Simulated scan of single mutants.
Amino acid sequence: MAPIASVLSEDTLKHFTEGLYQLFRGQTAIAYDGSLTIAGGGEHQVAFNLWQAECNTTPNEVYLSFSSLRERISLEQAKDGLQSDLARSARISLLGEMTASIAHEVNQPLGTIVASAEAGLRWLFRDEPDIAEVKLLLERIAKNGKRAADVITTMRAMASNKKSERLPTDINSVIEEAVLLLRTDFAKRQVTLRLELSPILPLVKADKTQILQVIVNLALNAAQAMSDGQAWNRTLCIRTRQCATDIMVDVEDSGPGIDPHVRERLFDSFFSTKETGIGMGLAICRSVIEAHGSWIELQSTPHLGARFSFGLPAEQTHTNG
Score class of each variant (00 low, 15 high):
205 K>R: 15
88 R>Y: 06
219 A>Q: 03
174 V>L: 07
76 E>S: 15
292 H>N: 06
301 T>A: 06
10 E>K: 12
31 A>D: 05
60 N>F: 15
47 A>Y: 02
138 L>I: 15
66 F>M: 04
163 K>D: 12
44 H>F: 12
41 G>S: 09
218 L>T: 02
12 T>M: 01
116 S>A: 14
308 F>C: 01
97 E>V: 07
223 A>S: 14
258 I>L: 07
32 Y>G: 09
18 E>M: 05
186 F>E: 09
142 A>S: 11
147 R>T: 12
90 A>V: 07
315 E>C: 06
8 L>V: 09
162 K>N: 12
146 K>D: 14
64 L>H: 07
31 A>G: 05
309 S>R: 13
58 T>I: 10
203 L>S: 08
101 S>N: 02
272 S>E: 03
66 F>Y: 14
175 I>Y: 00
125 F>C: 10
205 K>L: 14
18 E>K: 10
319 T>H: 15
7 V>H: 05
165 E>G: 06
204 V>L: 05
110 L>K: 11
124 L>C: 09
14 K>C: 04
23 L>Y: 09
302 P>L: 14
120 G>I: 10
282 L>C: 06
54 E>T: 10
183 R>D: 12
309 S>T: 10
71 E>H: 13
100 A>E: 11
50 L>G: 01
102 I>W: 01
188 K>G: 03
194 R>C: 04
284 I>W: 02
40 G>A: 07
293 G>K: 03
12 T>H: 01
319 T>M: 10
235 T>D: 05
129 P>E: 13
114 V>S: 05
101 S>G: 10
245 T>W: 05
12 T>A: 05
55 C>N: 07
232 W>Q: 15
316 Q>G: 04
90 A>D: 09
9 S>W: 08
321 G>D: 09
321 G>R: 15
96 G>S: 11
105 E>C: 10
29 A>K: 15
61 E>C: 13
164 S>H: 05
115 A>D: 12
164 S>G: 10
175 I>K: 04
317 T>W: 03
103 A>S: 11
139 E>N: 12
8 L>G: 05
110 L>P: 02
116 S>P: 02
9 S>T: 15
46 V>P: 02
50 L>F: 14
136 L>Y: 01
124 L>W: 01
59 P>A: 04
9 S>V: 13
290 E>V: 08
314 A>R: 01
97 E>H: 13
316 Q>N: 07
125 F>T: 14
282 L>A: 04
254 S>D: 14
98 M>E: 12
71 E>G: 05
120 G>N: 00
311 G>T: 04
272 S>M: 08
109 P>I: 00
261 H>A: 15
150 D>P: 07
42 G>L: 02
196 E>G: 08
283 A>C: 11
5 A>N: 02
291 A>Q: 08
92 I>W: 09
10 E>W: 06
243 C>I: 15
8 L>K: 07
244 A>P: 03
197 L>E: 05
188 K>R: 08
169 T>R: 06
122 R>G: 03
43 E>F: 11
